[in-house]
Amino acid sequence: MNAAEELKQAMPAAVVSTGMLIDKPLAIIKKEEILKAAGKVKEMGFDNLSVITGIDYRDRFEVIYNFFSYKKKENLVLKVVLDHEAPSVDSVASIWKVADWLERETYDLVGIKFTGHPNLVRILLPDGWNGHPLRKDYDMETEQFVTMGEDGEDIVSTDGSNLLRRR
């Protein structure tokens, strides 16, 4: 029995279905239950949260958590499906410290809100950037420029006239 089925047995209410992602056990989790499921996963010995990925499928968002256990040498993949209008899911930053930045990055680039995150602000792009670049409907035409304010913070605008030499 692989880890995903184990999880399903332990929390039948939370797991929608199980399967395989090439060679890694995969469990699709209900959106509301992710925090509980993550706690259970940690108990099961998956101490390393490798990566959090957010994917825009045009009609829905998926958030994917890849776990690895150094003790059992096993993989586990959790997946949450979110609706496209207001994608939000509970943050797991209270369990894995690394999730703090991974979730901020996912918020920044894909635009998924992680409720309960201690400090959900943009991490790679400056505050005030318009849009989330990894969404499929991101506007690649409009150029946005960054200038520096008095105190060294970034100011984003579409007007680069005080940055560019000629236009």
């Binding site: 792009l125 400056p126 420029f145 960054v146 520096m148 970034d154």
Partner: peptide, 10 residues
Amino acid sequence: TKRMAPRVKQ
């Protein structure tokens, strides 16, 4: 990058 540009200019 866009974010680095004002710093380079400064």
